[in-house]
Design a protein around this nucleic acid. Structure first.
Lengths: 143, 143
DNA sequence: GCCAGAGTTGACAATGGTTCTCATTCCAGT
DNA sequence: ACTGGAATGAGAACCATTGTCAACTCTGGC
């Protein structure tokens, strides 16, 4: 599957050892276009014969997330999902049926968020923006 | 971007019985300006002498959320928090230290989200926007 | 190569929010 | 009051996530 948008494979944070386990997690992430939960990644690795402990999967994903190497998305149920992402700041357009994701850039929103927050005297501003919808193919296959 | 101050007390969804327990949950929500987790509300009620089971608190909050009577916000840890909200569509500016919340309206973002999604052929569009920051009083009391 | 020590791992336990179960209780209409 | 369906609540179950800690494994220095 071609990588149309700029989403380089994640790289391990500096100062960490490139162990077999961590490489496996990274490669599992690289192999998938969609968001995967820690548990799913753990399963994938198991089926590939790569034995990696669940704790390690969690730890590695968290490290990657902290380093900004992967996106973290929280589902309605609060479960965290991870996906490789472009390094620049961006948001997501997610299909609520199939989970297909498009990365979005929006200078408009960035500025808007900054302004609104500043107006209220808030500093140290961050924001999260997710757009949900039904993607073309899913709305086509709707009975 | 306007600051909405009108936040009516939530009302029980139709077709449900206005029991003592449900009333208590609603009134607890009405009494608070901030987001409260289900557990917190349960505690508040307990201290008020209103005995309401935890399950019931969860059920009631979920019903209210489904009916759009309250806002649901998921913290970083995935815990759900509830607050009464204005009925119109809006977003939040949340202080990451004290949890203080300001409701935000942003026609700009609404339009932007619609457009972006439409560009990609997505339909049935919804979105979630939250802005995080440090509020004036919290940034003042920082050591 | 060998060693030492810090980094890393993983089986398992523990945590904690949320949901489920089901016997009991409450409500509305007759 | 009577009755059936809705609602409740104590506790168990669930399950993602985090903590524990002994065993293991890199890496740099010798």
């Amino acid at each position: 599957m071609t990588n149309i948008d700029h989403r380089p494979d994640p790289t391990l944070p500096e100062g960490t050892r490139p162990t077999r386990q961590r490489r496996a997690v990274v490669s599992a992430l690289s192999a998938s276009e969609e968001f995967r939960s820690a548990q799913e990644i753990h399963d994938v690795l198991r089926h590939e014969g790569e034995n990696v402990g669940l704790s390690t999967v969690y730890r590695t994903l968290q490290a990657l997330a902290d380093a900004g190497e992967v996106d973290v998305l929280r589902g309605e149920d609060g479960e965290a999902s991870y996906r490789r992402c472009s390094t620049s700041h961006h948001h997501h357009l997610v299909c609520r049926d199939c989970g297909r994701t498009v990365e979005i850039e929006g200078p408009t929103v960035e500025r808007w968020a900054e302004n609104v927050a500043a107006e209220h005297g808030f500093t140290d501003i961050g924001h999260s923006v997710e757009i949900f919808g039904t993607c073309p193919s899913c709305s086509a296959s709707r009975t």
